[in-house]
Write a protein that binds this DNA or RNA. Sequence first.
DNA 1: CCCATTGGTCAAGCTGCTTGACTTTTTGAT
DNA 2: ATCAAAAAGTCAAGCAGCTTGACCAATGGG
Lengths: 147, 147
Amino acid sequence: METENLALAVVVLAAARGLVDGIDARTRAAGFDDLRPAHGFVFARIAAGDAGISELAAHMGVTKQAASQLVDELSRKGYVRREPDPRDGRAKIVTLTARGVAATRAADQAAAELVGQWRQTLGAEAVGTLLDSLGRVAPAGRLRPIW
Amino acid sequence: METENLALAVVVLAAARGLVDGIDARTRAAGFDDLRPAHGFVFARIAAGDAGISELAAHMGVTKQAASQLVDELSRKGYVRREPDPRDGRAKIVTLTARGVAATRAADQAAAELVGQWRQTLGAEAVGTLLDSLGRVAPAGRLRPIW
DNA sequence: CCCATTGGTCAAGCTGCTTGACTTTTTGAT
DNA sequence: ATCAAAAAGTCAAGCAGCTTGACCAATGGG
């Protein structure tokens, strides 16, 4: 049976999985053991500029309710804060606490380590090419947990 | 805040997500609208050689019970069959039915179309390099739904 | 000025996975 | 040959994380 093309897809998924697992494991080892991979996307979005619940939801491709629950959890655990939006009485702005910033840093460092391993295997130039290529074929849209 | 490395990880995830979504959408459009992406991994494993429940579970990184349920569902929907293993009275071999083979073909063709689009964007050579590189950094292990 | 839209929450429900307990068959060490 | 331990699979129950549905408060275009 010719499943070569599926196999190609599988390689991309395996690489993604390797990254997610690696970042998760290292972040936990760094003391943030109450975080799940999905939380990383919240942090990533907030780090790119404060955001409201609806923006987070859109960014992750989930419902507002789900995003709200995630923020609840992160808030309970001390990683983010909900603040009223001075410009819009309905909206609330989600901000990283100091702990949230620390966790983001840890995750980023974990990612750096993993990409560093890629460089050891492939060489710096090949990694550059790889990421450039992926950037051009990856859809811009939602960034949600895959399935 | 320096989250560049996280951003690199995000690109890989986005590419993976694009593939999964694309394959899922095309496979559904081809008439297999009662399949979820996770089912693809069952098919991929079986297509690579008949397998038992435990092997499927290990391959997907889930418990035997979860794998058993998946096979239940696929069996109910007519994609696979459970057959007793002649060599081991405990084991059961999971095989693709004709419909299962057809679905696998549809998924493979969908993957081929998507990779074809990549070739249009990047060129055939770059796609080859890309997949070769990913193959060398992707961990061999589990192939499960990412989170 | 009003009403459709938007941001957000509360509540309930469901799906897909997990842990736990069990049966049957195989393996392997004595 | 025997018997304990391991492995394949299933049944049952529970739970986490998401969904749909209903709702309130604030906004803003006509």
